[in-house]
């Protein structure tokens, strides 16, 4: 038995990332390393800068300072912030994926489920209808959507199904890094559980790395290996997820953890 993580290099290395909205801080001086197969959670309340950080990392927002170094398939680290837009967009549909909180931001609502799932494949050159459809069916199955729904539009799906469809659409090209913004937000608790189970299985089977932004501490406890706590745009604490939650060091984290309702 051999462990995956230690002998492979860093996948994503963030150095001194800062983003300002005029005089206001979006996020300031954020640094961390993410290794293959690791899931990192970012928690904090609304306005803490966690979504700003995620969008800067994914290249959706321009960044003021810092580096986001990503290890390409050729092995070299490259600063994605210095990449040309075509390169970055290519990354965004091959090695990277982004799962939005609201499925409708990440889906084409006027295109069938199969078309949604197949788009990334077609975007990278797949031109065989039968093969595209077969892998769409395979992926719908993996996110527990029945094959006979393949030609339905996402508007006919429940919120949980839409979210699972969005995940299938993102993971079909086998990305190595997935950014998730509140992936279980706005879903019923029972639906959340199903989605969490699904995500954990996919992360394990595909060896995915992920950065997950959420305000739900229960979600990060179950999904994330490591945790980063943000407040007012600053990182106030990082560490192993269970350590940060069970033995928080910073006053803000202690407050956050003690504010969670016990069930």
């Amino acid at each position: 038995m051999k462990d995956m993580a230690p002998d492979t290099g860093v996948l994503l290395s963030v150095r001194g990332l800062s983003k300002f909205y005029g005089p206001r801080i979006g996020c300031k001086d954020v640094s961390f390393d993410l290794y293959p197969g690791e899931v990192m959670g970012i928690v904090g309340e609304s306005g803490s800068g966690k979504s700003t950080l995620l969008n800067c990392l994914a290249g959706h927002l321009p960044t003021d300072h810092g580096e986001v170094l990503f290890s390409g398939r050729d092995g070299g680290l490259r600063d994605t912030l210095q990449m040309s837009e075509p390169e970055r967009r290519m990354l965004g549909r091959t090695d990277w994926a982004f799962v939005h909180q609201h499925a409708r931001d990440g889906l084409r609502m006027n295109v069938s489920a199969g078309g949604n799932v197949g788009e990334r494949q077609m975007a990278v050159g797949a031109r065989h209808y039968g093969a595209i459809r077969d892998s769409a069916i395979d992926w719908l199955g993996r996110v527990e959507i029945a094959e006979d729904r393949i030609d339905d539009r996402p508007t006919a799906f429940s919120g949980g199904m839409q979210q699972r469809l969005q995940i299938a659409r993102n993971l079909i090209t086998g990305p190595r890094l997935v950014f998730m913004d509140e992936p279980t937000g706005g879903l019923d608790v029972s639906v959340q559980a199903r989605l969490l189970d699904l995500l954990r299985g996919l992360v394990r089977e595909m060896g995915l790395s992920a950065v997950i932004v959420t305000h739900d501490l229960a979600v990060v406890r179950l999904l994330a290996d490591r945790l980063m706590v943000m407040k007012d745009g600053h990182v106030v604490e990082t560490g192993l997820t269970d350590q940060v939650l069970d033995d928080p060091q910073h006053g803000y984290t202690q407050l956050l953890v003690s504010s969670v309702l016990q069930v």
Binding site: M1, D3, A5, L196, D197, D225, R226, L240
Partner: peptide, 24 residues
């Protein structure tokens, strides 16, 4: 953290009094 995670995966087991699992 990742060294600890790797240690926990391979070398260090823990049977706690509480079961914490993903529902379902």
């Amino acid at each position: 953290p990742r060294a600890i995670l790797s240690l926990r995966r391979q070398s260090l087991g823990y049977v706690s009094q509480f079961l914490r699992v993903v529902p379902r």
